[in-house]
């Protein structure tokens, strides 16, 4: 088990402390942008656990996010479950979905698995539209309760959740589970020869990724006050998650968070150029990926040779 040296963690801690005291000085708008960015960060970090460590090409992060979001939203809107219980229900639904997604992953890999995960998203989307009576269909589902209507508390919830998720995911990735996943992802047979049960670890990886994706999806619903296909299920959201993880630096966990925050803040800064902002963000991301394959984290000197 590798330890995280204090010297490397120090800048991170400074950034986090700065973020934690931000509500004292910043206005509601900046907090609002960062709140969404933090939930996106968890999406990207969970995805990185699957891809970066286990080598699973998952094109459907929104399958897990969507299950968590709709599970929680429906629990609150239909069963009148209080928010914490609803979030728990959403997380359970997402984990079940994650395990279901792990089954094809045991047999398939590369673009084949990628397609299956993509199809899972499309089927979820179809199901939401077909069962519009309980899901709200393409118009979306309004949930009666929200975490808070003030930006301050919403921001703190999101920040705390991101830090905890990042910490847990990093510990898992650096533990023996992460090592075995990485080994199995690179050479299945060798890993099996060493006596590791790759199947069990793979299912674990999917379940953990699903847990955090689902929790983040559920929390996002109670931040937005609505669950809708365009916010938590659409393939384009999944694309943004993947881009965020690769952009920040894959196989680092924390890179996902950096990429997600970068993408959302850049999109926000480019708002004045209007319609073309998405184009420019995509262009920047493309340039970064081609020139800096290790992502934004690759820029930090301390990571070189690590």
């Amino acid at each position: 088990m590798r330890t995280i040296s204090l010297r490397r963690a120090l800048p991170l801690i400074i950034v986090l402390v700065f973020l934690a005291v931000l509500p004292l000085g910043a206005n509601g708008y900046i907090l609002g942008v960062l709140t969404t960015a933090f939930y996106f960060a968890v999406f990207a970090m969970s995805w990185d656990l699957l891809f970066g460590y286990a080598g699973e090409v998952n094109f459907g992060p929104t399958f897990l996010i969507g299950l968590g979001a709709y599970g929680a939203g429906m629990a609150n809107a239909l069963l009148h479950a209080p928010v914490p219980l609803a979030i728990l229900i959403g997380a359970i639904v997402a984990v079940a979905g994650g395990v279901a997604l792990a089954i094809p992953a045991l047999r398939l890999s590369g673009p084949y698995l990628g397609l299956i995960t993509l199809v899972a998203v499309l089927l979820l989307q179809q199901a939401i539209v077909i069962f519009a009576g309980v899901t709200g269909g393409e118009i979306g589902l309004s949930v009666p309760d929200v975490l808070s209507i003030d930006s301050g508390p919403n921001y703190e919830y999101a920040l705390a959740f991101m830090i905890i998720s990042g910490l847990v995911l990093s510990i898992i990735a650096r533990s023996s589970l992460g090592m075995i996943l990485q080994a199995a992802g690179q050479d299945k047979i060798a890993a099996a020869a060493l006596g590791f049960n790759a199947t069990r670890h793979k299912i674990m990886a999917f379940a953990i990724s699903a847990l955090f994706s689902g929790l983040a999806g559920a929390l996002l619903v109670f931040y937005l006050g609505t669950a809708s296909v365009s916010a938590v299920v659409d393939v384009s959201i999944g694309v943004r998650v993947i881009i965020a993880a690769v952009l920040g630096g894959r196989r680092t966990i924390i890179g996902g968070a950096i990429g997600a925050i970068f993408l959302i803040v850049a999109g926000e800064l480019l708002r004045p150029i209007g319609q073309l902002s998405t184009f420019v963000v995509a262009l920047i991301a493309l340039i970064v990926i081609v020139i800096l394959p290790d992502g934004l984290l690759g820029l930090l000197p301390s990571r070189r040779g690590a």
């Binding site: 206005n27 509601g28 609002g32 969404t36 930006s151 996002l220 365009s230 916010a231 708002r271």
Partner: peptide, 21 residues
């Protein structure tokens, strides 16, 4: 005038910003 790109997330964020900011 703000573009929500057909996304509810963007729209809610922009709505809050218009009201509060």
């Amino acid at each position: 005038i703000e573009d929500d790109h057909l996304s509810t997330t963007d729209a809610i964020r922009s709505f809050q910003r218009m009201v509060k900011q």
